[in-house]
Amino acid sequence: MPSEKQIVETFEKIAADIPGFIAASLVDLDSGMTLGLKSTRPEFDLAAASAYNSEMVKQKLKIMKSLNLKTTLEDMLLTLGDQIHLIKMVTPTTFLYLAADRASTNLAIVRSAVNKNTSVLV
């Protein structure tokens, strides 16, 4: 598992690559607790968002199991009115959650920046 310091350093690199970066966290899937985080907006409750997102990921995995899908969940892209949220599975027990401002960036940039920098989080 990466150290918290490595996690934060990785998020700083991702933030540098994404215009409009808002926040990112590495989340433990089972508990929904954050292993490391970075946020540019204090009002964005990253811990709560991470926790609820863990439930969303678990539900998705349950759906996949009930459909007997023999594949893995790679990521989930969510487009909100003014934000983009990306949930990317890093290991079977952790995922990266990232939020960015939709007006400043796009899905391709977000995905590219995350994929480029997450190997260290494994």
Partner: peptide
């Protein structure tokens, strides 16, 4: 095992989250 330097906080969050997993 989680390595830590508690004086700087390094490793404390990882150990805690791991423990929460065990508790759950």
């Amino acid at each position: 095992v989680v390595e830590s330097v508690a004086a700087t906080g390094e490793g404390t969050r990882e150990a805690f989250v791991f423990a929460v997993r065990l508790a759950l």
